[in-house]
Design a protein around this nucleic acid. Structure first.
Length: 259
DNA sequence: ATGGTAGCCGCGCTA
C-alpha cells in the first residue's frame, strides 16, 4: 500500500499533472493540500475516472484539502472539532481500516506575527484531537504540508534559517509533540540522501540550487510504522514546467495487517 | 540589497 502527500498549489492548475502522476505512481491513498477550490468546482469526475474515490473540503483562493483513495473513504470529518476554523485545512477519513488525517498546517508567515500565533494555536489543538483519533483507531496516518522543518538536516541553510518561520523552536516542539503521541516520521525510518527536501521557493532558482526545506511529512502510528518498507520524495514533478513548489512525498506499507 | 515567483482575484494577499 502506497500513501502520498502533495501540496499541489491549485488543483485547477495542477490537475493534468496530478492525473499523470496518479497513473505513473499508482498510490493507494493521496492527501492533497492547497487545492484552492470551492467544493462545487472540485474535479470529481476527472479523478474518479482515474480510479480514485474522493473526499474534499475546500474554499476559494486559499487552503483546501482532499483525500483520494482506491477504496471508499468513510467516517469523513472536516476540521478539528476542538478548533473552530474558517480555513479549510483538515480532513480525515477511514480507508481500508486505516484512519487518515490530511493536514495543511498554517504557514505562519513570520515568527511573532498574528499568523504565527494562529499556527501555534492550530498545532496545539491538533495534538489532543490526534490523540483521540489514535485511541479510536491505532492504525493512524497524519500526512500533509506541516510547514515545519523538524531538524537542521531538513534545511538547506540551517544558519540562515535559524529561528525563522518553518524552523523555530516552538514549531519544532509542536512537531515533536505529535511524535510524542507515538507517531513516526516515515521518511526517517530509512537511510536517506543528504539534503533531501520537499519544498523549494519559486524565487531565486530555489529548486535548481536545491535550496529547499523538508516540510511535507507522512507520520505513521507504530503499528503502521512497523509495516513501512520505504519512504521517499518524488522530485520529478518539481522538474516539470509550471510545477507546484512542493514535491509529492510517499510511504509504502507492506500488505500484511497487524494482529 | 528586504529583491525574487506563482496563484488567486482584481490592482493586494498569501505562500
Amino acid at each position: 500500500m502506497k500513501i502520498a502527500a502533495w501540496n499541489v498549489n491549485s488543483l485547477k492548475v495542477r490537475l493534468p499533472q496530478l492525473l499523470e502522476w496518479l497513473e505513473a505512481s499508482k498510490p493507494d491513498l493521496v492527501c492533497l493540500q492547497e487545492t484552492k477550490l470551492e467544493d462545487h468546482n472540485f474535479p470529481r469526475q476527472e479523478i474518479e475516472s482515474s480510479g480514485y474515490q474522493v473526499a474534499f473540503s475546500g474554499q476559494k483562493t486559499y487552503n483546501g484539502v482532499a483525500l483520494l483513495a482506491r477504496e471508499t473513504p468513510t467516517d469523513i470529518v472536516c476540521g478539528n472539532p476542538h478548533f473552530p476554523d474558517e480555513q479549510k485545512r483538515l480532513i480525515a477519513a477511514t480507508v481500508g481500516g486505516i484512519r487518515v488525517v490530511c493536514a495543511y498546517v498554517p504557514n505562519g508567515q513570520a515568527v511573532g506575527s498574528d499568523k504565527y500565533a494562529y499556527k501555534l494555536a492550530w498545532l496545539d489543538a491538533l495534538a489532543p484531537w490526534l490523540g483521540e483519533q489514535l485511541a479510536s483507531n491505532p492504525q493512524l496516518v497524519l500526512a500533509g504540508d506541516f510547514n515545519i522543518a523538524p531538524e537542521d538536516r531538513d534545511v538547506h541553510n540551517p544558519v540562515a534559517w535559524a529561528d525563522q518561520i518553518l524552523c523555530s523552536a516552538p514549531e519544532r516542539a509542536a512537531f515533536q509533540r505529535l511524535l510524542g503521541l507515538g507517531m513516526k516520521d516515515s521518511f526517517r525510518l530509512f537511510e536517506q540522501p543528504e539534503k533531501s527536501f520537499s519544498w523549494w521557493d519559486y524565487r531565486m532558482l530555489g529548486f535548481q540550487k536545491n535550496q529547499g526545506l523538508r516540510i511535507d511529512h507522512i507520520l505513521l502510528s507504530e503499528p503502521l510504522a512497523a509495516r513501512c518498507t520505504a519512504a521517499a520524495i518524488d522530485r520529478e514533478m518539481r522538474k516539470r514546467e509550471r510545477p507546484s513548489d512542493h514535491a509529492p512525498v510517499t510511504a509504502t506499507l507492506d500488505g500484511k495487517c497487524p494482529p
